[in-house]
């Protein structure tokens, strides 16, 4: 393997052309495998009518039409449902960022009794399965009179042990002297948090925000549990309702999935760098 020998080329460009080509081939093959299901679904949702199913032609990009997507959008009232999902996801994301920042700050910079114990409890909440909490939480929401409301959808999701954990990791990596210097300058906790600590942890905030948005957008069991009117349904529930039990309507369902996944895919492409950078700064360094 001659190319494994050290040479004087720049470190990152050491591979032989043959290996580079090999890597490209591998990359393309794997990419095709990963994308194949997406492709199949995309084609389904761009085909009209029942003949899209069970036919080899249904995988080829011929006779494409927007009709199925348009129909799904209208039949499922997906416009309003998307709006609900958007509002819910934005509120939860903003809330999680704020509560995680403040809690992480307290755990990283402040001294108080039972700090370790309380932090352990925060960590442990990550392990409580949704199966346990949803059973009881829907009753709590009901007794608070928050059923069928955005408040009921959002509030129980506003704090996470994960967010606190990630940001505390970042804060702990900030030089301790920074806090001391700020203290000397007469900077209060609130000011230090907003003006120094938060901006310095921006990559992690971005990653946390993105992941929170994704998970909230994709929530199914929770909205299904606290919403039983049509006005507050979210997109994921709407897609489930598109499945009306008719075999020849399967492409309507696939169209719904495309509509639901599209905004997330766009976000992902736009912010992927932040995601990687944010995670590098946080969770990775144990």
């Amino acid at each position: 393997m001659p190319s494994d020998r050290p040479d004087d080329r720049p470190a990152l460009d050491r591979s032989s052309p043959a290996r580079t080509v090999g890597r490209y081939v591998l990359l393309v093959v794997v990419a095709l495998i990963v994308l194949a299901p997406v492709w199949a679904i995309l084609m389904q949702s761009l085909k009209s009518g029942p003949d899209s199913v069970r036919h080899p032609r249904s995988l080829l990009p011929v006779d494409l039409t927007w009709d199925t997507l348009r129909h799904a959008w209208r039949a499922g009232d997906l416009g309003r449902l998307s709006w609900n999902s958007l509002v819910m996801s934005v509120l939860v994301t903003a809330g999680v960022l704020v509560t995680s920042l403040t809690a992480a700050y307290a755990f990283a910079f402040l001294h108080f009794p039972l700090r370790r114990g309380l932090f352990a409890v925060f960590l442990a909440t990550m392990l409580v399965p949704a199966e346990v909490t949803i059973l009881i939480n829907k009753r709590t929401i009901e007794s608070l009179g928050w059923k069928n409301s955005m408040v009921g959808l959002v509030v129980p999701l506003l704090a996470t042990g994960m967010g606190t954990f990630l940001l505390r990791q970042v804060f702990l990596q900030l030089p301790q002297e920074l806090r001391e210097a700020a203290s000397l300058d007469g900077l209060g906790h609130a000011k230090f948090l907003w003006e120094v600590a938060a901006p310095l942890s921006r990559p992690t905030l971005a990653a946390l925000g993105l992941l929170t948005f994704l998970t909230t957008w994709n929530q199914y069991l929770w909205p299904q549990s606290v919403v039983d009117d049509t006005a507050h349904r979210t997109l994921q529930i709407g897609i489930a309702h598109l499945d009306n039990g008719r075999v020849d309507n399967i492409n309507l369902v696939t169209a719904g999935t495309v509509i639901a996944a599209l905004p997330i895919a766009v976000m992902l492409i736009a912010f992927q760098r932040h995601l990687v950078r944010g995670l590098t700064a946080g969770a990775v360094k144990g």
Binding site: L214, W217, N218, A240, A261, L268
Partner: peptide
């Protein structure tokens, strides 16, 4: 890209 898909999707 598969992050974009929920369990349901």
């Amino acid at each position: 890209s598969t992050i974009a898909s929920s369990v349901a999707v």
